[in-house]
Simulated scan of single mutants.
Amino acid sequence: MALKAVHVSDVPSLDQVPENASLTLFSSRFSTGVEMNNNNNNRASFKIPKFLVVGHRGHGMNVLQSSDKRMKAIKENSIVSFNSAAKYPIDYIEFDVQVTKDDCPVIFHDNFILSEDNGSIFEKRVTELCLSEFLCYGPQKEHGKVGKTLLRKTKDGKIVDWNVETDDSLCTLQEAFQQVEPTLGFNIELKFDDHVVYQQDYLIRVLQAILKVVFEHAKDRPILFSTFQPDAALLVRKLQSVYPVFFLTNGGTEIFYDVRRNSLEEAIKVCLEGGLQGIVSEVKEVFRNPGAVTKIKEAKLSLLTYGKLNNVSEAVYMQHLMGIEGVIVDLVQEITEAVSDMIKPPKVDEEDEKLSEGDGNTELKAKPEFSQRELSFLLKLIPELIQL
């Protein structure tokens, strides 16, 4: 069933810019922000001034069945996870926002919350819970209070306990603004169910609830919206012009009824027709189809990627060489260190100081170097190596 198209021309632009929101927010924050200027095409001219590293769901997503302890070290999409990521030289954190039945934006990835009661497992849709019901799952903020068991369904359908080394309570979008390091950028993914047809009035209500919190609490924090839902992407761009909107896409690694979601070429069309500023693609599709990067650049769109390969430093460096502007990663510490070593050039005085220390045998980490011919060969080879 295709997602219902929304006629954004019928939706009035809100542009509810708060008094404390700087219209030069992005151009003045080159360390963590982005640069935007309005043009005559109703689409902001958008430029990311540096290679961005974005923490996936904060410090990294939870893969509870993984043998890698790093994938279940800290509860994803939590205040603890966000502030843990902030300890590293990271630019943004990415997290998923849904809106409860009583119009409160909360941070949670899955469409359903799973729990257990008297030996029976049940699930409830996050958007059908009121805020108080949502917050009663998992660890509780109130000392001595015990929350309901929080379970999770793995990709292969197994139900497992949501056990992590460092747990934390569920949180709202407002709490994230109030409790997370204020210089850390927020990549707010507008989360919707792939299998639900959304009516226009529902999408508008949800987006307005999220924008209200953003406008009231963002202050000077860099903000970037993204979503897999094409109509939501078009609407949030229509409802405000302060913050950039990126269209999330699997790029064809997974097929949907809505053709707008099935290729990078379709993603480009969505962005150009709706005045969006960029694309966030599954990294495998970019490696399979490196020519799409050129098309995206020619369309003057920015490009970020997500996916497991972004936890491999060499794959991240290849993207930097290809002109991709940033990566969303799970292994925040490892990838920020790799980016610092391979991409960001050392300062001259720091390099001289290192060479002068010790017995003269100190070695600096050298970034990989590729000639244009070698890079061309690698780009031709990678699509053959990346399998569906």
Rank of each mutant, 00 (worst) to 15 (best):
M1W: 10
L3N: 12
V11A: 06
P18F: 13
P18N: 14
A21L: 04
L25P: 04
F26V: 01
S27C: 13
R29C: 12
F30Y: 13
F30W: 14
F30T: 08
G33T: 05
N39I: 08
N40G: 15
R43I: 02
R43Q: 02
F46W: 08
F46P: 02
V54R: 06
H59M: 15
M61P: 04
L64I: 08
M71A: 11
M71K: 14
K72L: 06
K72C: 10
E76T: 03
I79K: 01
N83G: 13
D91M: 04
C104D: 05
P105Q: 08
I107F: 01
F112P: 02
L114D: 01
S120Q: 14
S120N: 14
F122H: 12
F122W: 13
R125S: 09
T127Q: 08
L129N: 04
Q140R: 15
K141T: 08
H143W: 10
G144A: 12
V146I: 14
G147V: 01
L151H: 08
K153C: 09
T154M: 10
K155Y: 14
G157M: 06
K158L: 15
V160R: 11
D167T: 12
C171F: 03
Q174W: 07
Q179W: 10
E181F: 15
K191W: 11
F192G: 09
Y198E: 09
L203V: 03
L207H: 00
R221Y: 00
L224M: 10
L224D: 01
P230K: 00
R237D: 06
K238E: 04
G252M: 07
T253E: 14
D258N: 12
R260S: 09
N262S: 09
S263A: 04
S263Q: 03
L264S: 03
K269C: 07
L272A: 03
G278H: 02
K295D: 15
K297N: 15
T305E: 00
G307H: 00
K308Y: 14
K308A: 13
N311T: 00
E314A: 15
Y317E: 05
I328K: 00
V329Q: 00
V339Y: 03
S340C: 11
D341W: 11
M342W: 15
I343H: 05
V348Y: 14
E350Q: 10
E351Q: 13
L355A: 06
S356M: 13
S356Y: 07
N361K: 11
T362V: 15
T362Q: 13
E363W: 05
L364K: 05
K367G: 06
K367W: 02
E369F: 05
L378M: 07
L379G: 07
I382H: 00
E384N: 10
L385H: 10
Q387T: 12
L388T: 07
